[in-house]
Computed example of a mutant assay.
Amino acid sequence: MKKIVDYCQLNSVLISAICDATTFLAYNGYLNKVEHTGNSHDFIVNSCPNYCGSEFYIEKQCFNSGDLITANGTATLKFAKEIMNHLKVYSEEKIQKWYDFNKNGFYEE
């Protein structure tokens, strides 16, 4: 797995990680110098003895720092939206409509 992440970093390919994939990145030092989020700061600190990126931890469900998108395990919808926006699979307006529909359903409460 590290070879894939290294390749992506060297070639400016999007890296996106959610839930324990962010823990993998933290454990292996990939989050030590870049803004990111994850399941929680305490969880990463307690699970990753070599992690030293605390100053870059952002308390958000999902965070996009350019070629790196990280999210906690409860942010699947926001995570998908950030990836689609980054890849420009549709217009931002169409992606926002998709996001709102999936977040709110047919009926807003």
Rank of each mutant, 00 (worst) to 15 (best):
K2E: 14
I4C: 06
D6A: 14
C8P: 03
Q9D: 06
S12L: 11
S12K: 15
I15W: 01
S16H: 04
A17K: 12
A17D: 07
A17C: 13
C19W: 03
C19I: 09
D20G: 13
D20P: 05
A21L: 06
A21M: 05
T22H: 05
T23C: 07
L25H: 02
A26S: 01
G29P: 00
Y30D: 01
Y30N: 02
N32L: 01
K33E: 12
K33H: 08
V34Y: 00
V34N: 00
V34A: 02
E35Y: 11
E35F: 13
H36S: 04
G38K: 06
G38W: 03
S40E: 08
H41F: 13
H41M: 11
D42K: 14
D42V: 14
F43Y: 15
N46W: 09
N46H: 10
C48K: 06
P49E: 13
C52R: 15
G53P: 01
G53T: 07
S54F: 05
S54T: 15
E55W: 05
Q61W: 08
S65D: 02
G66L: 09
G66A: 10
D67W: 04
D67K: 12
L68T: 02
I69Y: 00
T70Y: 01
A71D: 01
G73K: 10
T74D: 06
A75T: 04
A75W: 02
K78A: 15
K78Q: 15
F79Q: 04
F79M: 08
F79W: 06
F79S: 02
F79Y: 14
A80K: 05
A80W: 00
K81W: 02
M84F: 02
L87C: 10
L87D: 05
Y90V: 11
Y90S: 10
S91I: 10
E92N: 09
E92K: 08
E93W: 04
I95P: 00
I95K: 04
Q96R: 05
K97F: 08
W98C: 14
W98M: 13
K103I: 09
G105M: 14
F106T: 11
F106C: 07
E108L: 15
E109P: 07
